[in-house]
Amino acid sequence: MIRVLFFGALADIAGREQLDLTWQPSLDSPAAIRLALAASAPALERALQQPQVLVARNLDQAGWDTPVADGDEIAFMPPVTGG
């Protein structure tokens, strides 16, 4: 299973903060996960295409082609606005 987390406005667009995907070898990167969302959530997939979207794998900042394995937690985050 891959746990996908959405934060900020991305959670609003996704309509949820968390999505558990059954593991498949094709979900081998954040980019592949984004692509897999296109069919069921096209607006979300478009939002994730924005260049400023941040990606994390298991609490570490990652890239769109960082390898993803079964059991990983992948987060999609808008630019941060704390402080």
């Binding site: 934060f7 808008p78 630019p79 941060v80 704390g82």
Partner: peptide, 24 residues
């Protein structure tokens, strides 16, 4: 650096509703 690197997101609420704050 906290402003641009730390994982926090602000949502403003007012009489007209609420919205996520854009990064500056």
């Amino acid at each position: 650096y906290l402003k641009i690197r730390a994982m926090f997101w602000k949502k403003e609420s007012g009489p007209r509703g609420s919205r996520w704050v854009e990064s500056r």
